[in-house]
């Protein structure tokens, strides 16, 4: 009896110790994960996640301090990628889907200050100084940085309308249980 308990305890201690040592010695630096996560993010440094830029968001994600759904421009696709890499599950169905938006400049109000042009990280705004600007809708990814700097509030974020081509059937309501 005692020998059994004793030998098992000894084995437990020895193996546990080995595992502990191995964890220290073979520990992987966190950096590759951060870089990998950062590569998944759009990289526009829009700051909508609450972090200064995508690199900082990736650090937080890697530490598990931020939710994988943090990136509005990345949307569902990025959230799912992040979740897969981090091995966490997110119920994207429950999360209110963020409606994709793009920026529109009210041509009456624009004074051609070019502040938004400088702010845009995807070069989606065309227009010279003192002239009215326009946003290339296909390029805009809805970070809304331009809207924040516009001195005349001429920039609005508008929902991207759902087209016939983009529409798809919703997920069928689940029967009681399978």
């Amino acid at each position: 009896m005692l020998t059994a308990v004793g030998s098992l305890t000894a084995m437990g201690v020895a193996l546990g110790g080995m595992l502990g040592v191995a964890a220290r010695l073979l520990a992987v630096e966190e950096d590759p994960l951060e870089l990998e996560l950062q590569a998944m993010l759009p990289g526009s440094q829009c700051g909508q996640c609450g972090f200064v830029g995508c690199a900082q968001a990736a650090v937080a994600l890697a530490k598990g301090e931020a939710s994988v759904t943090l990136c509005p421009p990345g949307g569902k696709a990025v959230a799912e990628q992040l979740a897969k890499r981090l091995g966490v599950t997110v119920d994207l169905g429950d999360q209110a889907p963020r409606v994709p938006v793009y920026a529109v400049i009210d041509e009456e109000l624009c004074i051609g200050c070019t502040r938004c042009v400088k702010e845009c990280s995807v070069d989606g705004i065309v227009g010279a100084s003192k002239l009215m600007h326009t946003i290339v809708a296909e390029v805009c990814h809805g970070c809304s940085k331009c809207a924040q700097v516009c001195p005349t509030d001429a920039i609005r974020m508008v929902e991207i309308p759902l087209t016939l081509a983009a529409w798809h059937w919703p997920k069928p309501a689940s029967p009681h249980t399978h």
């Binding site: 526009s44 799912e80 529409w167 798809h168």
Partner: peptide, 25 residues
């Protein structure tokens, strides 16, 4: 039908993110 549509939508989003990334760079 739902899954095909959802996968297409995801691909579109993915492509857009890729393009955004290229433009940002």
């Amino acid at each position: 039908n739902y899954a095909k549509g959802a996968l297409n939508a995801r691909d579109r989003e993915q492509r857009k993110t890729e393009r955004t990334k290229t433009l940002v760079e």
